[in-house]
Amino acid sequence: MSDDTDSRSTDADTAPNVLVVDDEAGIRDLLRQYLVSHGFRVSTVGTAAGARAVLDREPVDLILLDIGLPGEDGLSLTRYLRERWQGAVIIVSGRGDPVERIIGLEVGADDYVAKPFDLRELLARVRSVLRRANRTPATVDVDANSNQRETLNFDGWLLDVHLRQLTAPDGKTVELTTGEFDLLLTLLESPNRVLSREHLMLRLHGREPGPFDRAIDVQISRLRQKIESDPTRPKLIKSVRSVGYVLTASVAKR
């Protein structure tokens, strides 16, 4: 298996840079050609080691990652990335089993697309994740010339929306993935209001949940691990049976 890296770009150097990590050359070529034709810069590799090499030498905005890589698999690479890298990850895998999907989200992927996939749907997912990663919410109004950044304060926690940084009551910074940040911000925008799973899925992933889709539940679980003193008995993010979730804390802007 070759670990050669292929990189193509559009004329715009500022276009989002996507890294495709897949051991099938045909898939790499297909995704490279399609994404380049829609304005993205694209690098492709066939192994986890190749992905690390690309990340060491150039900025990457989003990774399309296959699980079934030779050697180190995609789930292991996702865990590694979440400890050291803040970009977005979409798993694109032939393992369409719901358990695999849940595991992929649990280890930190922002979305999961099963093979065979529709290229237009994949493009929509890529754009949606990148848009969430770079969006400035309409609920936040900050003077661009001000030296002060607005933060959202809840139960002693501080979320700096522009830095996308969460600070715990003890002053420590808590790292959030793109999906975790977007979920927390969505909850903070509607405190003490029950948000359905359907609403959260449309807001965060741009699609309606399937009958056995647990993507939102998995993201809630991951977020609780980071902000609840006892995630098994959550006090900040409460479940509303058969409906969705509610943030119970008061939220103040600073």
Rank of each mutant, 00 (worst) to 15 (best):
D73R: 10
R149P: 05
L183E: 01
V194N: 03
V126I: 13
I216S: 04
G244M: 12
L204D: 00
R214L: 15
R82G: 02
A15C: 09
L183S: 05
Y34H: 11
A49P: 00
T44S: 15
L65H: 10
V107A: 07
S242D: 13
R197A: 13
V92E: 01
L19R: 01
D61A: 11
L200M: 15
R254H: 13
H205Y: 14
T10A: 10
L159C: 08
V174M: 10
L184S: 08
D141H: 15
L247T: 10
A133D: 06
P231C: 03
R32D: 12
N153M: 08
R149L: 14
R32V: 12
R8P: 03
V142K: 14
Q86I: 08
K226Q: 11
D111Q: 02
L184F: 12
A215F: 08
Q165D: 03
T151I: 11
F181C: 05
R82E: 00
K235M: 12
D182Y: 03
W157K: 07
E83L: 09
P98E: 10
G244L: 08
I27G: 05
A51P: 02
L123S: 00
V240E: 11
F212Q: 13
H199Q: 14
D170P: 03
V251M: 04
H205I: 07
V251L: 02
E100M: 14
D29T: 15
A49G: 06
T10N: 09
E198A: 13
A15H: 05
P116R: 04
L176P: 03
R241T: 13
S43L: 03
A124C: 05
S2I: 11
G39F: 06
S37C: 08
R233N: 13
E106V: 05
D141L: 12
D182K: 04
L152K: 10
R28T: 03
D118C: 00
V99I: 15
D160K: 08
I90P: 08
T232H: 13
Q86N: 11
L122G: 02
M201C: 15
Q148H: 14
L35A: 01
P211E: 15
L223R: 07
T177C: 04
K253W: 09
T248H: 07
S190N: 15
P137R: 10
R224T: 02
S239K: 12
G156V: 02
L123R: 04
V18A: 04
G50I: 04
L122M: 02
R127G: 11
S76I: 09
V21C: 01
D61S: 14
P234V: 01
D111T: 02
D6V: 14
L105I: 06
S196W: 07
G108I: 00
R84F: 05
A88P: 06
R164V: 01
T186F: 05
V42A: 02
L35S: 00
R32Y: 05
P169I: 06
T44R: 04
L223P: 06
D29K: 14
V161D: 01
R52M: 07
